[in-house]
Design a protein around this nucleic acid. Sequence first.
DNA 1: TGCACTTTGGCAACAGCGTTGCGAAAGTGG
DNA 2: CCACTTTCGCAACGCTGTTGCCAAAGTGCA
Lengths: 417, 417
Amino acid sequence: MVKRTNDGDDTDRPPESGAGPATGSAWGLPPDREPGPETGRAPERPADAVTRRAAGVNLLALRSHNAALVLDLLRTAGPEGVSRLELAERAGLTPQAVSKITARLREEGLATDAGRRASTGGKPRTVLRLIPEAGHAVGVHLDRDELRVVLVDLDGRVVGERRAPLSLGAGAEAVLDALLGEVTEVLSDALGSGALSAPLGVGVALPGPLDHTRGVLHRVTGFPEWDGFPLRDVLAARLGVPVVVDKDTNAAALGLAVGGERGSFACLYLGTGLGAGLVIGDVVHRGARTGAGEFGHQVIQLDGPLCSCGNRGCVEALCLAAMGRGDVAEAARVLGEGAANLAGLLDIDAVLLGGRTIMAAPEPFVRGVAVVLDAHARREGSREGAVPVRLAPGGARAVAEGAAQLLLGPVFGRRDG
Amino acid sequence: MVKRTNDGDDTDRPPESGAGPATGSAWGLPPDREPGPETGRAPERPADAVTRRAAGVNLLALRSHNAALVLDLLRTAGPEGVSRLELAERAGLTPQAVSKITARLREEGLATDAGRRASTGGKPRTVLRLIPEAGHAVGVHLDRDELRVVLVDLDGRVVGERRAPLSLGAGAEAVLDALLGEVTEVLSDALGSGALSAPLGVGVALPGPLDHTRGVLHRVTGFPEWDGFPLRDVLAARLGVPVVVDKDTNAAALGLAVGGERGSFACLYLGTGLGAGLVIGDVVHRGARTGAGEFGHQVIQLDGPLCSCGNRGCVEALCLAAMGRGDVAEAARVLGEGAANLAGLLDIDAVLLGGRTIMAAPEPFVRGVAVVLDAHARREGSREGAVPVRLAPGGARAVAEGAAQLLLGPVFGRRDG
DNA sequence: TGCACTTTGGCAACAGCGTTGCGAAAGTGG
DNA sequence: CCACTTTCGCAACGCTGTTGCCAAAGTGCA
């Protein structure tokens, strides 16, 4: 039902990566071709992809942009729905344009009526809502010791889930087999239980570093054997649907951005390591090399204790050392100083905390970080007050859900950054 | 000749701030009304302006977007010009669409023929170029001890300039009078020497903090009497043209972004203080409160020496202390550590150095910062190598030129961030 | 109960965008 | 001089959002 939004440049777009021949349901098919580690897309200079994209806007691009925007407004409104006039006001379009767009969305099965509003003296407004079942995506969280697969609908609701223990160091074949198996299971469960259209694709989130634009892993921390592995293309070839790969922190941040966190914010995740997902102006910021978010190896103590990365005085080293001593307050303070540096540099609207270590003792961390940010704001005389600190919502499934949003986001017009 | 790009929402847009009745050339007119500190625009909640702007795209918006894009490509091509087919390829539009757009630009006096290319076996391509004289903007750099005003054409070339000593602490009236005087002088010089269309407006860059969206100053460092002064609206009322206000570091960064520096980069300015201008994806990042770029008060030495801001161990304090001891190498090293934190956090493409202190001894700073970034990159095993460090080009006029780009940028489709 | 009024939202005509088909213009090369 | 290539404008077209208009569906007062 849902097609990926057409950007109007379908004339010379490279073919969908590994989409291969659509032999019925391609799920669970044996690999019809095994791309070697070097068989990726045509090598494109990353600089080109960033510095000057063809920014000319087509009528087709305009159409899909506005349709995606209206769809996003419908999604944001939730099950209560929105009226056409409200959509028009929020989108900055005329009511008649919205009428045409919503008529198309209804024809495509993406939207439907949802009752009417109370009259204000005239004809009551007809309320529209998204049909969440019109599209699905798979989100995979490939963690160091666990694999989690979720199936979510257009609304972002989880409609299927599986977990399995897994070691990232068990070798590519073992990990891929486990991943493909769990994904297939989740999908066949959903297919058995009800009507399910073909999924839009699979998003995979895992610890970095990696190249998001090409979907190639670099040396995953602690598992150098993955270096250079073209995960996206291998998975796309085996699954027969589009695959997107991203860092776990970015996926989590994307999930929050889609889930209602507006503006610019940073999610700090403290677990085996310390990383950050950055959202700037509602867009996940990855950087040209998918290297953004290196929060943990920010130096906040010149010539401080040696960190595993080779530098001295990194936030991560100080924070984990404090945790090793059982000094949560100091760990939170150190984290707060790093967060204050980040907040000052980017003028973000919120700091969100997550990760296993923080979830084990949320309150002292949130308070400790807030205290540092408050102190900085007061000393610098900020008129807006300190950046608010909150716990990142979503729990243990957040990364997998965010991974699914790597596919759902474009449907609602979200750009990558 | 040049009208500001129409975004298609001119139905309910607030009137151009202080544009007033156009009584001939409004320059140098006595103030016909003096807006008090509270007579600004209708107060708009900053959250709204950031979190959800009406993103629906109009046919009018599409038209002006594509026209601005083509104009930008013409500007980038320089005096040699570009052919229609090249424009079409770069813009992602069909040649025929480009023909129509360039025909309009030629009618409006913004573009013209510039010879032809050598034939490749058929009709030779006609080359088009921008007409730089079709539009101008004024850039003002309001520094602590000096005032600099430049007049630039569409190409960004400086066609008029004036300097005057000035103390920001001399009081609002004195500073405003000096500013208005110099601006009027620059314009009348240009009017006398040749044909000059009415300028697009005036961009003013000064040390922060301030509110870029409203054009209101906060407590300019060291000059608390400016707190809350609505500089944009006051100047707009007196000059009768649009005015945009921004931090000096942001203006400088914008100037570099327009001047050819692509992608994402940071400009670090070391003078009486230490600040940064951030460009992320070709867009200046200011943050919702125009607070981004607080590079100098990044803490890199927990419990270090006290800084003027009240915190301890700020880069600025350490850097300036080292300079006070004459230890340029240590200052560069400290600066480099801060730059490494920034580069890791944002995955930027380049670090540019500027400011009076650095220009006094450029080579040791560039080398010292590069050494630190190299060391970090090597230790972390970056496959792309270290972030390149360069001197920010442009010299002493860079900030004023960038201020003028605050007005020119929108003509070429540059969004604010 | 009936009528005036308000508000919503679809139908139809329209202006204007980029696209396509086609041909004139302006070169090269034999 | 002619065949060929390439550029680029004119004209028709499809599709976008916009405007004008009117039916539909309520409220509220007589």
